[in-house]
Design a protein around this nucleic acid. Structure first.
Length: 223
DNA sequence: AGCTGATCATAC
DNA sequence: GTATGATCAGCT
């Protein structure tokens, strides 16, 4: 087994990520002493956990970056045969209460996305999980245009939440980033602002990057 | 076929 | 419940 300590620099992290590029999930899982599931039905976060372990991210459920001291967030990005994202990318929980004073600049979304180490992986369902290959990693920071697009979406969604209209928000809102349920199941409830400014119970929500967003990020680095 | 809404595992 | 890691699966 070889479970590394956290990298002490951005370069060390990138080198480590580059070192596992080209390995299959089975190769890496074997090195780490981890079992490979035959499907993701009950192991949805498996790939992300595998990469976290391999790169020395601190496991935990803290609302911050994977590598806090480096200001870097780690994200796996499953691609199909066309090298296009297969799924949206979860960013973070959405605040539904006590949102006075929140701005794009001090938002959790902006903080999380300050700098991201994207690790493309094969996600084509046809490829057995054990055989899927880890791709070439790259560091990304939003361009001014991308930041503006994300800010637009964040402000639109947060405005609706602040106005007590969270229940009217669907995944169709937002050009590059959307709001969707984020919970263990449909019975999970949390507090939110209601239409009359009162407190209501609603399903917890999370921010997700649309595939169009991650596709744009990919094209920016591989074209 | 693709998307939206729902769901699964785990830590605390 | 909150928050991390995401993918599943029913519906349009």
């Amino acid at each position: 087994m070889n479970k590394p300590m956290p990298p002490d620099s951005e370069q060390a992290l990138l080198l480590r990520a580059e070192a596992i590029a080209g390995l299959s999930f089975k190769d890496l899982a074997d090195n780490l002493g981890v079992a490979v599931p035959s499907n993701f039905k009950r192991h949805k976060g498996w790939t992300g956990q595998l990469l976290e372990t391999a790169l020395g991210a601190t496991a935990g459920s803290k609302p911050q970056q994977d590598f806090v001291q480096l200001g870097i967030e780690l994200k796996s990005l499953p691609l199909n045969y066309a090298n296009t994202p297969i799924e949206t990318t979860y960013v973070c929980y959405a605040p539904l209460m006590k949102i006075a004073g929140l701005t794009w600049a001090n938002s959790n979304v902006k903080n999380k996305l300050q700098k991201v180490l994207w690790v493309p992986v094969q996600g084509e369902p046809e490829i057995p999980i054990a055989e899927r290959i880890i791709g070439t990693p790259f560091l990304w920071q939003a361009t001014a245009q991308q930041d503006a697009l994300l800010q637009q979406d964040w402000e639109e969604l947060m405005d609706l939440i602040a106005l007590g209209k969270v229940e009217t928000i669907t995944a169709r809102h937002g050009q590059m980033m959307q709001l969707r349920p984020k919970a263990a199941n449909g019975r999970a409830l949390t507090q939110a602002i209601g239409e009359d400014g009162n407190i209501i119970q609603t399903r917890p929500r999370g921010f997700y990057l649309r595939k169009e967003m991650t596709q744009m990020i990919l094209e920016q680095h591989f074209s």
